[in-house]
Design a protein around this nucleic acid. Structure first.
Lengths: 123, 123, 123, 123
DNA sequence: GTGGTCTAGACCACT
DNA sequence: GTGGTCTAGACCACA
């Protein structure tokens, strides 16, 4: 059902990896509004991390109104998942691209380098 | 003249921003071999950061043989042209692209979205 | 400086009490944009709670963009603290009043009862 | 006829919402002494909640002597008019007002704001 | 069974 | 010394 993969070596915090993968699951349509997520305990066991780590990830997504939790029942994808109007979305895309380019430039990579590299993944 | 811009909010460590900007300055030919850098103290004052932060950046660049410190004289851009191993460069490009894609995907952006956005900047 | 008071008996989670008091401190103008908050450790000692409890409160306020943290430096009131446009604010007021009235009604209290009780505190 | 409305998102426990609505129904004269309530099972089905949730609510109301259960017959509104100790009532009013004010204050609302808002509803 | 809260304590990254 | 992350384990509230 769920296919989470955590990379303990990446340096990216585990709870953030969980957040990213849930966001991706929703954005990609894999999970739909109202659907129930695995319980914190189940996911913690599956990922072999502490309960609190999963809980922290769920909590942040709840604050962002991406998830809803009902104590004693479970955690669910929010009914109105991330109403991003197109403008906001565009802005987000621009800002993360700019941030990324700045970082990449500092390593001496050009836009061409990056586009070429990304091109390999478009399949 | 050196022009650093640090972003305290980006989440990228300050010392890494300094390192990256020096590397980039050299890679872009803005700074040449043998040129002298500001003292740790001077740069710290200019950037309004802690002495240790600048010091850490200089040290890492020395280890990378990008800078050379001459006792009592100052810190200079290494005479040796920065040889960036092509394989290492490739690896770095791949890894930062992967990390970036993971984050972008979680917001629902596809490789196509990103390539399109980057394309606008390819002038 | 800071005058936090936690009520361990109220049933309200400690970290939420901390959040409320910080929000209040900002809303009331006691703390201004850019000002530094006590360190997590200092506040934890002062309140006699665990470091993680304070950290959790700060984290939530950071997600809400009310606080900003710089690793190694400290935690600060966000530069643009809570840009609430008047409409949003009105809406929030209405919704919390409605919620409260519903609860109060169920105990048989009328709006008049409440206004009278609140009146005592207006000094 | 009973008309319950439960709000799963409010954060208020479902069993408490049931309790409050029964109390309110009685306080407002909508239900009279001796009247029979739906069975635990029936109400659970109607509200689409767990049996235990309704059961917990009924039990607490029995403890408060607001409901009476007659073995094998059903659950009834107590014959004894709800005698609410005036002192207890005052205390309850004070405590819920205090809790509400704390939350409202943290959003920057003053007692005046609230009284004004509540005034609109005093018809 | 669900999630929520809290503690104690460890280790890491950054300034 | 700053905050960040994670663990292990306990206890509570709700359904």
């Amino acid at each position: 059902m769920i296919e989470f993969k955590l990379d303990h070596k990446s340096g990216v915090p585990l709870y953030r990896q969980i957040i990213d993968q849930i966001r991706y699951g929703i954005a990609s349509g894999k999970w739909k509004a109202g659907e129930q997520l695995p319980t914190v305990r189940a996911l913690a066991v599956e990922l072999k991390v502490n309960l609190n780590t999963v809980s922290k990830a769920y909590k942040e997504l709840e604050i962002l109104k991406i998830l809803e939790t009902q104590q004693g029942t479970g955690t669910f994808i929010s009914d109105m998942p991330i109403e991003i109007n197109e403008k906001e979305r565009k802005g987000k895309l621009e800002s993360i691209c700019t941030e990324f380019l700045t970082a990449a430039n500092s390593y001496g990579f050009t836009v061409e380098d990056i586009v070429e590299e990304l091109g390999k993944r478009e399949k």
